[in-house]
Design a protein around this nucleic acid. Sequence first.
DNA 1: TGCATAAAATGAATCGTTTCAATCATGCGG
DNA 2: CCGCATGATTGAAACGATTCATTTTATGCA
Lengths: 340, 340
Amino acid sequence: MAVSVKEVAAEAGVSVGTVSNVLNRPEVVSERTVNKVSAAIEKLGFVRNDAARQLRAGHSRNFGLVVLDGRNPFFMDVTQGAQHRALENGYTVLMGSSDNSLTTEQQLLDLFEEQRVAGVLISPMHSDLSRLWKIREAGTPVVLVDRGSGDRSFSSVSVNDVEGGRIAVQHLVDLGRKKIAFVGGPQSIEQVQHRLEGAQSVIAGTADAVLQVMPTKQLTVLEGRAAGERILAMNPDERPDGIFAANDLLALGILQALVMSGSLRVPEDIALVGYDNIDFAQSAVVPITTVRQPAEEIGRTAVDVLLREAEAGADTVREQFVFTPKLVVRESTVGTGNAS
Amino acid sequence: MAVSVKEVAAEAGVSVGTVSNVLNRPEVVSERTVNKVSAAIEKLGFVRNDAARQLRAGHSRNFGLVVLDGRNPFFMDVTQGAQHRALENGYTVLMGSSDNSLTTEQQLLDLFEEQRVAGVLISPMHSDLSRLWKIREAGTPVVLVDRGSGDRSFSSVSVNDVEGGRIAVQHLVDLGRKKIAFVGGPQSIEQVQHRLEGAQSVIAGTADAVLQVMPTKQLTVLEGRAAGERILAMNPDERPDGIFAANDLLALGILQALVMSGSLRVPEDIALVGYDNIDFAQSAVVPITTVRQPAEEIGRTAVDVLLREAEAGADTVREQFVFTPKLVVRESTVGTGNAS
DNA sequence: TGCATAAAATGAATCGTTTCAATCATGCGG
DNA sequence: CCGCATGATTGAAACGATTCATTTTATGCA
């Protein structure tokens, strides 16, 4: 059923080696032969078997990408960026979502190892990177995405999350909000941890300001809604007047809860800041002030770094890219022009 | 660098065939040997080379999935559903987005062919399915996703888009809206075409009702915003009082434009219906009435069908799944309890 | 203990492509 | 017309897992 080089060779009256050369280094074979072989390929509908190719090569031309949440538009954008840059260099990207599950993360890495991916891009769930060390020792380059590598032992492309948390909460404080809530979790996610640290640093430096941490199990709209309910149920005098959500999905959920109740106005009663600047943040009930991360650029850069590591082999210099986040101010903190 | 069965065999003091048996049919090998081999595998850190495996097998354990827009949450949900069901059966899904480009669609299919995927799931861009015929003739099962197969020559898992368009516009008409606009495109996308047909059928059966078609180049928030601007710029007496957008992203964009202008209220001046029921539709400025498609179930079902086709080989009965869409009413058409 | 039979283990052949040392053809200067 | 350099082509080996016909070992029974 499947046509192989052998049959192409027979059809064109040349050897298999020549067919392979036509495929991979046409410059070393005479024009007449190229034509003959091309015609045979066309006629028989030959399609190269990638498995055989990579068996010989020892590795594939795929990169493996593990993100924390495949449904979060932020990671979709990262993926998009990575996919494009990879394609430009003749690679493809296998994307998998760990979905908050360590088991799934492991499974994906197992899969990638079996497939002998040319490199791994990962936004790891926690700080135990031992598995990633093993993978790299086996010869597969690894780049951390959206997450720095504390001791610089891995290349990484990330955003300064502490700074992001800082500017978010500084913005709230500048608006006169003193009772701030940080909504986010799990703490095991380093990004969440860092954003919280940034928030705390602002509070520490501001008189009268207090921060209460409201943990969530995940970074989803649903969890956000639950957090919103909790805020609504609070005693009015302990209720925050400013909320910093660890990402936009949470913020969206919180906003939904608040708006649906009708009893608290955003931003008048509670100002809300999210994180990521996903497209949907600006089309929310109340457009959400957020901290922008250059998602596509992160994806592109990560692939660039990976390509360099793959090129250089074992003795690579690790690269640390850290982007600086930017505040995007919208109505969820400053209100609309007409409504006070 | 890479450990192969041969080395495992040496370490365990058995033959390569036995190692393979331990890996694939442990029931035929004695318990003692299984233990020896397992220990060797553990010790050497052996990871099966999938390329070699699938070279022998003749095909991989991957399915290829081509969606129209990888950033549309609807397709993300379809992908998620497909991925889960595939994983349950020991397969993985390679997802690619054709991004409105025929060339990209072709490239993805080329890639999938080279990778010898075990099956193709595709939401094709247009009605020329000749390429898909070829793929199937080469022995790879193909299932159409979110799109029926006119002549039933392919298995398909889809939603009745004509019905979807019908209930959307019927809803608008029931609310007394007579000047309806259909926003969507390109027409080459069959889903768009069908939703429009459904809309037209309602209009045809309703006295005084008129439908104007506002074509878009893509189904994105950005295009939606542009369409919204066009509506704002219209002469008030030719402006529609009801809009049916071909998907939620467009609806979101339209809503943004209308709300930002401040001169037209939704739903009082213009009622708006979207399509897909993506999560973000309900957290929009004005929560959007929409037509729900069971995205994850579509993905899951598509994989089920593909598995059956792969199982059955050439002489398969084609299956046509058609889900019925459901209207989800929100404030963008009926207003809030308190306002009006 | 011997023998028939079942269970377990073996290893060579296979999948399709790429690589590379070896061979063959071509053209050119002398 | 020969020798040689250059270019073109060849074909066998290799990649690593799986398969299966064959051989070896174990088990049960008389």
